[in-house]
Design a protein around this nucleic acid. Structure first.
Lengths: 206, 206
DNA sequence: TAGATTGTTAATCGATTAACAATC
DNA sequence: TAGATTGTTAATCGATTAACAATC
């Protein structure tokens, strides 16, 4: 166990470990080793052991790790042994796709509120969610203590939405707009931008 | 100029530099400095200069970088001074959203072919693209020398699609399915998975 | 017991930062 | 000229890997 600050690059790998372990469990496997897990993920066994050792000793010499137990531990560490209500802001094609995505539920998340500022959309439904007026976002986030927001509005409005969300008390933002959001240091931001990923790959295409 | 292998972590940052420079150009700015750019992106000026120095000297002492010139150079380096035709496979909500996204065009990409295996979808249209039968994917990719594929099918079918794409000659895959794809070393893979990003953030939420 | 695999320490490797001469 | 900023070298920092005693 290490009570110092955990490097963020280690934290970043934990969800990947969790995902892989969950797949193995589903496939009926009961134990794994750092070697096995590393092979599947494409990283070294040493790195997996080192990463996990920041949080404790979860394995047994000779036999490796109980998948079920390690999943539990990782869920605890990542705080996904609970369900986080998410507010989704922006109902374009992308927001619509995310609102209809059913993969969040089993992994610690739930789209709980959906906002848009288009009068033509407000009041209509996606699944069983009514689209709410963005004007009410701040109030509703505050009242329901929502801490996680997904932003799927266009680049021009993303910073505005982020500002309102932060004022309402949100402290994690998953941003799909192609802009760097300016937020207080205490607020987590992660970006998803397919263009950056594509351009990263085309570098290698000659 | 450095003729050795460029670290991938450097390559990964270049699209972000390009994106930021394009925004600055749009805002009417004509020159920038490593300090200015660093401030906007949230990294050090030294790192930007070091990164760029792998590819050549693009700036002028005292005045910094011509934004227009640096954009040109980065587009050359990233091979996005051309338009890459992309094949999109899987027309669920997400595939639909991507097919309708108009942000690719100006950044080096174009959705050129869309595939699905659902007879109810084949032959219907998204915008002016007809949805084609996945059975024809391999042939069409080969014939049209498509090198980039986006996979938006579910986790169970993603590896299958990847296999066919690779057999057809594709060498870059943007994968939205929550699985690690097994492909030859020569094939680039990038993953987009919102759950991993969300769990990365919830680690920090106490 | 013999084989396998952990958790941890030390060694290696690589990335970032600081500093500065060169020069616009 | 004086101020600003580059490109590059050396110093620092941090992450990954190798190795191994402990032990299931």
């Amino acid at each position: 166990m290490d009570s110092n600050q955990i490097p963020d690059i280690v934290v970043e790998r934990l969800p990947l470990y969790l995902q892989t372990l969950q797949r193995l469990l589903k496939e009926g496997q009961e134990t794994t080793s750092s070697k096995d897990l590393g092979n599947r993920i494409g990283i070294s066994a040493a790195q997996i052991r080192k990463d996990l050792s920041h949080f404790g000793g979860f394995g047994k010499q000779g036999t490796g790790y109980s998948i079920k137990y390690l999943i539990e531990k990782l869920e605890d560490i990542l705080n996904v042994n609970q369900v986080w209500d998410i507010a989704l802001v922006g109902v374009g094609f992308l927001g619509h796709a995310i609102a209809n995505f059913d993969g969040f539920q089993n992994h610690g998340f739930k789209i709980a509120y959906i906002f848009d500022n288009d009068p033509g959309k407000i009041g209509t439904k996606i699944g069983n969610h009514e689209i709410l007026d963005s004007k009410k976002m701040k109030e509703i986030i505050k009242k329901n203590k929502i801490r996680v927001v997904m932003i799927t509005v266009d680049a021009e409005h993303a910073q505005d939405v982020a500002n309102h969300a932060v004022e309402a008390g949100v402290d994690a933002i998953l941003n799909y707009a192609p802009v760097k959001l300016m937020v207080p240091e205490s607020v987590q931001v992660q970006n998803i931008d397919p263009i950056l990923k594509l351009q990263h790959m085309t570098y290698y295409l000659r």
